[in-house]
Design a binder for these strands. Structure first.
Lengths: 305, 305
DNA sequence: GGAGAACGGTCAGCTGAGCTGAACAATCGG
DNA sequence: CCGATTGTTCAGCTCAGCTGACCGTTCTCC
């Protein structure tokens, strides 16, 4: 019978590339990883690793083995989830990767609710942008990721991830109500010369915003680049820039600015992702449910404001 | 991450019923099994075993867990099979459970062929009747079973078994050519008073034979009960009994007796069974192929004789 | 109804699987 | 060409997990 622990090391090696990275990730010494993998080679009688440069590469049979390891580990996680589900109380620790907008707008309310409903559940949050979040999910660094998708920018679907819709979040143009930019017309095409504040250019929201401006016939004059939506909102409010911002922001924030709908009422899709094996885990279900609930409350709060 | 070794113990407990049996089967002390299972309980936080009488019973969550354990272990076996398939040479040890007719007629030829083609493969044979054979297969005591199925006596299909047809083997009436029974008519219905030799009454061949006699309108007068087909054939040849015997017997044996076809030309189905995970293992494939080949040779030899 | 057998659970004690850390060779980048 | 990085080997240590002895409970068979 193949040893699952060794298969796990091989799997991690496939994901992370080097023995050293695997050792760091799993808090082992590189020596331990090397020893376990050579034992795996000897007990199977199949060459699994070949040195290339100062690193190693998986052989073809090793990659086949990684596929089996994935399946085995997924099934073990499902088993664990089933066991946890048979308990009356939701316990343990879940780690969540979120990006800033959701972290700001939904996570605090969700945490409050979880603390009340499942006091034995410990939740840990990391701020990660969607690109890194999926790698962290599959590497078992986190158990749930919050992701976003912008119109016209489809993601590559990761295998082994159970994805669930969370919300569709309206995207609108934010214009100052005071200062020199107060009289700007409420029309995207007319903002060619305006100073823009945007996320870093490689990020999803910035790529969507730039594409949208180009479709309106101009290249945006990005004066300020920041990933912080609070700062973006503040810069618009104080009359220094215009921006394209998601509605979810206004559930926590009520700045004095103009919000203008865009043609076609574009939305970003928010979703949650869990590893397929843990999708049934009560802690994951509780978290997703708390997030949906927080969204509901935020929405009703928003319509009242 | 759940420990697969412990899951395996739970799985074996589910199959074998008592901790002591598991310990015997896996060459552990009962103490070791008890300790590992309590550890599994503590690390999952779920009650898995409850004492009933002087034994234990699995709880509902434990039975769910066994299902997962089955899936995990099957996948690990498939992984091992894939690895073995990537080797150029077929090596290792396979254990086969066969019942007597096939053991006599096919296995020797198959072994010869295997020894020539795959010298590094070690084959171990146990004689087991089909009923026990499947339990042994699932308990990992053997890797391949040879089974038979008689018309009108369907088996319960075991889950987790990969079954493959091997042959359809004709069943005919065997009558003496000499002695006091030499003049018996070649017709089943006329053998009501004849002395019969049959397998033990609970066995498949005997159940079929009795059913066949009853369908012909009489209860067979079974004078001799033996599981040994060689002895059965010998008793017919020496004029002491009549019998219903499979054609495969005559590939090795050429006794002086009369063989009479039955209405409808009934056949028994011979098949091989492997655990689903090991069906792709080169050793299992080699064995099945050698058996088919041996059957082919036996058949041509039979038609020549 | 009592003796004996069978089953699990617990505890003390031992052994080996698997870890760390040091030393080393190979490779890459600036 | 030197320092940083990566993987490998080896000696040594630690603890997970085994055995064996002992005990309580339950069933079976005179």
């Amino acid at each position: 019978m193949l040893d699952v622990h060794r298969l796990r090391l091989l799997r991690e090696l496939h994901r992370r590339g080097t023995l050293a990275a695997v050792a760091r990730a799993l808090s082992y010494s590189p020596s331990a990883v090397s020893q376990q993998l050579s034992l795996l080679e000897h007990e199977t009688g199949v060459r699994l690793l070949e040195r290339v440069g100062r690193g190693v590469r998986l052989t073809a049979p090793a990659r086949v083995l990684v596929g089996h390891a994935d399946a085995v580990i997924e099934r073990l996680e499902r088993a664990e989830a089933d066991l946890a589900a048979s308990l009356s109380e939701v316990t343990g620790t879940v780690r969540v990767a979120s990006f800033q907008t959701v972290l700001l707008a939904l996570v605090p309310a969700a945490l409050t609710r979880l603390a009340a409903e499942h006091p034995a559940l410990r939740v840990e949050i990391t701020q990660l942008e969607p690109e890194e979040a999926f790698a962290a999910l599959l590497a078992h660094d986190v158990d749930l990721v919050l992701g976003e998708e912008y119109p016209g920018l489809p993601r590559v679907l990761e295998d082994g991830v159970d994805e669930e819709d969370l919300a569709h979040d309206g995207l609108r143009l934010a214009l100052p109500r005071h200062g020199p930019l107060a009289r700007l017309p409420e029309d995207l095409a007319a903002l060619a010369g305006a100073p823009w504040v945007m996320d870093p250019p490689a990020s999803l929201p910035a790529r969507w915003a730039v594409a949208r401006c180009r479709a309106a016939g101009f290249e945006p004059d990005v004066r300020i680049e920041t990933p912080d939506p609070l700062l973006q909102s503040h810069l618009v409010e104080t009359g220094h820039a215009v921006a394209l911002l998601p509605d979810l922001l206004w559930t926590q924030l009520h700045p004095d600015l103009r919000l203008v709908a865009l043609p076609g009422d574009p939305v970003r899709r928010l979703y949650t992702g869990a590893r397929r094996g843990t999708a049934g885990h009560p802690a994951v279900r509780a978290l997703r449910s708390a997030l949906r609930d927080a969204l509901e409350r935020a929405r009703t709060g928003l319509s009242r404001a």
